[in-house]
């Protein structure tokens, strides 16, 4: 059998002119390469890439009540541009993402604290902070909805003990999005903390020793060593958190959605996010063509923001 060592690496002209056996070898290598990425690649193609094009196509169609669609050109997009619900939802989505990004520095601080040498019970803290990540969003939404309940909620009860009158946090349009963002942060902080903790572990100890010899204190060490060394991790966490937050649906549906079939939450219209609006249009109103157009707008927004983040990283991310 032939082995990989026999493959010519630095002699392209020989490969081009080469003997048929070598050519065959090349092709086989390619085939194997594709075979190895096939399980992932096919899944990606079938469940992500193909649907993107399908959605793009559907965004130019109008749907019947039970399927079947007709081409209507750019009509959905024309309607979308002047739809106050779409612009409102877009604004809410961006605000929500900005709020949830506030959780990134929090998770960094938590990671640094948990990484403190000699901390007792570090594993327990890690589990406690990570627990919300692995808890079902349905359960999280239900429990937090109770906590936020204006009349019988624990939060307002505690506030009343110190003489503050609470609000109907998730039914009041002024607070609903902020209240939901708190839950969004609570649900992502654990995951980000674990990533940061891994990043911290990867910083070589001798850097700190050298800094100490040079007389740098812990604060100086944090800003001159930890932060720059951690910037690739921070970039990764920021990109993923913002994409996740821009696509938020579950906590919005569970906490701001209707409690019963007949009654709408009075806060939902002014606080809905773009994916929630997509869901309502696609599955409640069954206006799937318009919903596809909304989904496509979200895709563009995420794409744009991610490109901006990748451009901006050159200014602050240091790859050691």
């Amino acid at each position: 059998m032939t082995t990989l060592e026999e493959v010519p690496v630095a002699a392209p002209q020989r490969a081009v002119a080469g003997r048929p056996a070598r050519k065959r070898l090349r092709r086989r290598e390619w085939l194997w390469g594709f075979a190895f990425i096939a399980p992932n690649g096919l899944g990606l193609l079938a469940f992500y890439i193909w649907p993107v094009f399908q959605t793009l196509y559907y965004s130019f169609t109008e749907w019947g009540a039970f399927g079947g669609h007709t081409w209507i050109g750019a009509e959905n997009y024309v309607k979308l541009v002047s739809d106050p619900e779409v612009s409102g939802a877009l604004k809410n989505t961006l605000l929500y993402a900005a709020l949830v990004l506030l959780g990134v520095p929090i998770s960094l601080v938590l990671a640094a604290l948990i990484n403190t040498p000699g901390l007792r019970g570090a594993a327990v803290y890690r589990v406690l902070y990570f627990l919300p990540v692995v808890t079902m969003p349905a359960a999280v939404g239900m429990v937090w909805r109770w906590l936020y309940n204006g009349d019988i909620g624990l939060i307002n009860h505690v506030l009343s003990l110190v003489g503050i009158e609470g609000h109907h946090w998730v039914a009041d349009p002024r607070f609903a999005l902020y209240a939901t963002a708190v839950v969004g942060i609570w649900m992502t902080v654990g995951y980000n903390m674990v990533i940061f903790a891994a990043g911290l572990k990867g910083i070589p100890k001798d850097l700190y020793e050298a800094a100490e010899l040079d007389g740098a204190g812990p604060v100086r060490q944090f800003f001159s060593i930890t932060l720059p060394m951690l910037s690739p991790t921070a970039f990764f966490v920021t990109v993923l958190t913002s994409i996740g937050a821009l696509q938020v649906f579950d906590v919005i549906y569970l906490m701001l959605g209707s409690n019963s079939a007949a009654l709408r939450n009075p806060a939902i219209d002014e606080n809905q996010t773009i994916v929630f609006l997509f869901f309502e249009r696609a599955f409640v109103d069954n206006d799937k063509g318009y919903a596809a157009a909304i989904a496509f707008v979200l895709l563009l927004v995420i794409l744009l923001l991610t490109i901006v983040q990748f451009r901006a990283q050159k200014r602050w991310v240091h790859y050691a």
Partner: peptide
Amino acid sequence: PTVQQMSDTEPT
């Protein structure tokens, strides 16, 4: 109760 109250806790 107000609409907000009835959204937090169902009338039933």
